[in-house]
Design a protein around this nucleic acid. Structure first.
Lengths: 190, 190
DNA sequence: CGGCTATAGTACGACCCGTACTATACAGAT
DNA sequence: ATCTGTATAGTACGGGTCGTACTATAGCCG
């Protein structure tokens, strides 16, 4: 049971090993151009984190690993904070291309405490009500992002598509739970 | 960004700390009675792993932690392999009750490499096709489990409900993606 | 320029994870 | 009886991940 799926189920190779998090970093640098870790963190939290969550400490560490595998190159800012700026190398671009155009996918993974509680015998009604609120908020958030990228630069096509997927997903979840709650309310007061 | 949500976002307390995985173990022991780690692993893989994945090595370790926190007690089998058998303590049962009846939930978390690839500019069509196959298989699997627990022992109500949620979820995902693929096929050959 | 808040990180230890390996049970073949 | 293959039932280990807590600079408002 692989909980932390990367690309190959670890080819044992070591510094060459690329996880989903690696590709998240590579993709963002391709989109944004040379970036500092903080640029990446900001962008991540408004986009990828919605379907591929990464804690910020892991995220700050990832570029360092990718430099070691020479998928990224690193420059130092001249003045100010002298922050590190990362760019894609050819190897990085290649790896990204190969991954992106391969049809292989690791299984989707859900961690849903609500269903866990229902399994354990918890009352579904308050659980679904909580979740409805959450999905409503998420839906509003994603619709906001979607408006923010509403140009037609083809480089952002994927970004727009994934946001549309997210909107559709949350709307579906929300409607399904609302239907359930209504049906319960109806059968509760006959 | 909390990727590994437990109950409280870690109260710092230490051995008393209970994660979602802890409650998975406690719930299964409540359902099955005193159990060996392997019993638990088997049951987990057919149920909870669908919405709360845990690798088997973590899972084998968890009962040990729970004994340390005195949520479980441990006996040794008399003969044969002298395997360890775990039972709920009163503290364990209390913790489980409190968690199960509290309405608080950590946010749901999805790790979906398909959307990550779409974000990165991958072609959605083969990705959704892959995913359709996956959801179809999962649906069949869950329907099998559902038949297997089709008695009416009230202790298994939560188990049945969570399976129904899983079936509904996978059916929804499958139908949404099939609709998308059909609409693409239609617009592709006008 | 002094304090406040937001921004931009680092430190660290506990825990998690995947790979690889070990070891026992049991069935059927010899 | 024992061999040998397969399913069952785990353990060992080291690198990676996680959350908490802390530090430090930037910009703003008075």
């Amino acid at each position: 049971m692989n909980v932390n799926p990367g690309l190959p189920p670890t080819n044992g190779d070591d510094a060459t090993r690329l996880t989903g998090t690696s590709f998240a970093v590579l993709t963002l640098i391709e989109l944004l151009g040379p970036s500092t870790p903080y640029d990446l963190k900001q962008a991540l939290e408004r986009s990828i984190a919605n379907f591929w969550m990464v804690p910020h400490t892991t995220f700050y560490a990832e570029p360092t690993r990718l430099v070691k595998g020479s998928f990224l190159s690193e420059q130092q800012e001249a003045g100010g904070r002298r922050r590190k700026v990362y760019s894609l190398t050819d190897a990085g671009r290649d790896a990204l291309d190969r991954w992106r155009s391969s049809p292989e996918l690791t299984p989707p993974q859900l961690r849903e405490e609500g269903v866990l509680k229902i399994f354990a015998g918890g009352d579904p009604i308050p659980i679904f009500r909580e979740r409805c609120d959450w999905h409503r908020a998420k839906l509003a958030e994603l619709e906001g992002y979607l408006e923010a990228v509403s140009g037609d630069d083809p480089a952002w096509n994927g970004v727009r598509s994934s946001l549309q997927v997210g909107v559709a997903y949350n709307r579906m979840m929300l409607e399904a739970m609302e239907r359930f709650l209504e049906s319960q309310a109806a059968s509760g007061t006959p």
